[in-house]
Design a protein around this nucleic acid. Structure first.
Lengths: 267, 267
DNA sequence: CAGTGGTCTAGACCACTGG
DNA sequence: CAGTGGTCTAGACCACTGC
C-alpha cells in the first residue's frame, strides 16, 4: 500500500483520520478519506450490489460500515451525485441514477424542437432498421477498446417526431456483454435504449462524449430520412462509458436540424 | 422581509442559524444561510468590488464579515466555484474567474482540431471584418432583452487556424455597456474577446447557451470562408450571460468542420 | 411518529504557498 | 514561518417523506 485506506480492522473514525493524516510521508499521491470512500461506493455500483433506481444504505449506515463520520460519507455522496451517478431525495434516501425515469426526453439526447416542449407531440417513434452481428472496423474497435475484427453488434434505427424522420442512428456494441440483443427485444421495449441496457444487460451508461460535425447525406441516408441529397445534417459521434470509464457503446447519429436544434450549455 | 437573512446587526453566528431555523413559519420559500451568503457574494462580484483574477477575502474574513461559521461560507464558495465564478487555489486563496488566462484555447469555444492539441499550431488568427453600430433586429432584441430597434454593436470576424479560415462569426452587443468598442480596439487586443470585455467594459461572461444546426452557406459566407456553396457548416448560435443571468451578447458562428469538430461532454 | 437527507457550528489538524 | 484552502469529526437541530 502506498497510500492509506479504509480497513475494516480500523477501530475508530479518529483512527482513520489519523491514518490519512500520517500516511505516506514521501508519496506524492495523497488521497483524502472521502475519495477512498467514493472508490468503495463505486465498487458497490459497478458490482451490481446497488442497482439502478434502488436506494443505497443511509448515510448513517454507510458511516458505520466505513467507520468514518457522517460528514465524510456525505462528501463522497455529494461528488457522486454531482456526477449524476446517485440522486439524493430529501426525506427518502439516496438512489442509484437510472435512464428509465426520463419519459419525455432521453437523458443524453440534446436535440430539441424549435417550438414547444420536448414531449408536446408525444414520444418519439422508433423504428429499428437492422440489428446484426458483425466484425469491428478499426474505428469502432479503437472507440470500444477492442481489436479490429472482434465481434460487435450493430443497430441501425430511425427516430421520428410527429411522424417526421429526424434522426438516423448507427449503434455499435461489444458483442459479449450484450449477447442476446435482437431487433425484436429493442422493438418490444418501451423506454430509452439505455434503460434496456440497465435492466437486461446490467450495463449502466454514466457519461458520454460527442463529436459534432456538419455533413451531407449519402443516398442510403437520404432514403431513410426522406430528404434530398443537399440537406445538411448534424453528424453526432458518441462514445458512452460505464462506471469505470470503460467505453461500452459507440454511436453515430445524423440529425435533421430544420425544425430541431442541438442544445448545449457552456459553463 | 419574507425570509430570514444575514444582518450586520446580528450578534452571533448562532443567532443567524436560529433566525434561519425559526424563519417564516408559513412561507414556502426557505433559503439556507449559505445560499444567502452566496447571494451577498454575488453582489460583491456584480458590483465590481471583487474584480476578475483578483483574490477575494479569505474564508475566515468572510466568516467574520457575515457572522457565520467558516463551514458555511465554505459551502457558499463551493457552489460558486462549481459554477466557475470563483477559482480556489490551495495555499493561495480564492480568486474571481476570468477569461484572460486561457491562452491556448478560449473557454467557451468547443471546436477542436482532429489531430493534435488545440494550440499545437499556435493561436488562432483573428481578422475583424467589420464593427458597426446598428439597430437591433427582432431576433437580436429578444435574445438581449432589448426592444426592436434599440442600438446594438455588430462585430463580424473570421478566425483561422494554420491560415485556414475556419470560423465566421457575427457578434451582437448592447450598445450602452459596450460604448466605445471599435474594430481597432478589437484588433489591438491580444487575448480572448471576453477578456477584453472584462478589463475594458467590466462585463464578465459567466455562462452561455448554444443552439447548433447544420446549414449551407450563402455567397457572402462562401467568400469569407473561401469555400464552395455546397460545404455543410455548423451554425452555432450563442447567448452569453453575466452574473445576474442577464444576456449581454448574442453570437452566431459558422464552423467549418472538415478538419475540426465540436466537442461536447454528456453527464 | 421515526427515518431520511440538509444545514450549521466549533474546533482540530493537514497540505500547500510564499516570503 | 504565517496564512490560505482542504479534510475530518461530533453533535445539534431542521426540512421533508411516508406510515
Amino acid at each position: 500500500m502506498t497510500t492509506s485506506s479504509v480497513f475494516p480492522s480500523d477501530s475508530t473514525a479518529a483512527a482513520n483520520a489519523d491514518a490519512v493524516a500520517a500516511a505516506s510521508p514521501a508519496t506524492p499521491a495523497f488521497s483524502p478519506l472521502y475519495q477512498q470512500i467514493k472508490v468503495l461506493m463505486l465498487h458497490s455500483l459497478q458490482s451490481g450490489e446497488w442497482k439502478p433506481s434502488a436506494a443505497i444504505p443511509s448515510e448513517q449506515e454507510l458511516a458505520a460500515r466505513f467507520k468514518v463520520s457522517q460528514g465524510t460519507v456525505r462528501k463522497a455522496i455529494d461528488e457522486l451525485a454531482a456526477e449524476n451517478l446517485l440522486v439524493r431525495r430529501q426525506g427518502k434516501g439516496t438512489f442509484v441514477a437510472t435512464h428509465a425515469e426520463h419519459h419525455v426526453q432521453y437523458r443524453f439526447l440534446k436535440l430539441f424542437p424549435d417550438n414547444g416542449d420536448p414531449g408536446s407531440k408525444g414520444p418519439a417513434q422508433r423504428e429499428i432498421i437492422d440489428c446484426k452481428r458483425m466484425r469491428a472496423s478499426a474505428d469502432v474497435a479503437r472507440a470500444l477498446c477492442l481489436h479490429t475484427g472482434d465481434a460487435v453488434l450493430q443497430v441501425r434505427r430511425v427516430l421520428s417526431f410527429a411522424d417526421v424522420p429526424t434522426i438516423l442512428e448507427d449503434v455499435w456494441l461489444p458483442a459479449t456483454p450484450f449477447k442476446g440483443l435482437t431487433a425484436e427485444r429493442l422493438n418490444d421495449y418501451d423506454g430509452p435504449m439505455y434503460a434496456l441496457f440497465e435492466t437486461e444487460f446490467g450495463v449502466c451508461m454514466v457519461r458520454a462524449e460527442e463529436k459534432i460535425r456538419a455533413v451531407l447525406p449519402d443516398t442510403d441516408q437520404c432514403a431513410l430520412l426522406k430528404i434530398g441529397p443537399q440537406t445538411p445534417l448534424l453528424s453526432v459521434e458518441r462514445i458512452a462509458y460505464t462506471y469505470n470509464d470503460a467505453p461500452m457503446e459507440m454511436r453515430r447519429g445524423l440529425y435533421l436540424t430544420d425544425t430541431h436544434y442541438y442544445r448545449n450549455a457552456l459553463n
